[in-house]
Nucleic acid binder design. Structure first.
Lengths: 71, 71
DNA sequence: AATTATTTATTGAAAAACAATAATTATTTT
DNA sequence: AAAATAATTATTGTTTTTCAATAAATAATT
């Protein structure tokens, strides 16, 4: 299972969803979809903007959690 | 810019593209597209399968390289 | 209570994954 | 070098999904 950790990154940076939305240039509604784990894919262009805005790596945003693991 | 480092992971694991293709369940053609940096997006279901097959994290496969950086 | 921010839902259009197939190119093996 | 195998590229078509735009509902803040 792939987990999107945008909320963690935002909290750490004390950045609001709306601000990220502006920086990244995608609508608040779609930021919310990403944040709440409802997206089923992501364009590299979007991931690129996210990493740039948050100054981080894809690995900071995306996490793979194996089925068996009980984290 | 987002870079797909599948080739690196495969070399490290001494795994052939064809084998990855079978494990992940996507066609050799599409594995190739990913490997050669021609994909413009990725489904989380695919990323999930890749991570499972290679026993790694998204961050091992995807890399963000800022524009200015001359790596 | 009022305002602001976020989430959810819906619709529609554009983009792109992915399969399947075939052809080409590259690599490896004999 | 030839043959066999593997990988890449290209094409077509279907399906999935992003993403925008908008509106409504919910949550959080002031």
């Amino acid at each position: 299972m792939i987990i999107v950790n945008l909320d963690v990154m935002l909290a750490r940076r004390k950045m609001a969803s709306g601000e990220l939305s502006e920086k990244v240039g995608i609508s608040p509604a779609n930021i919310s979809i990403l944040k709440t784990g409802k997206a089923k894919a992501i364009r590299f262009s979007t991931l690129d903007s996210l990493c740039a805005a948050l100054q981080c790596q894809p690995g900071d945003i995306l996490e793979f959690r194996p089925d068996t693991e009980t984290k």
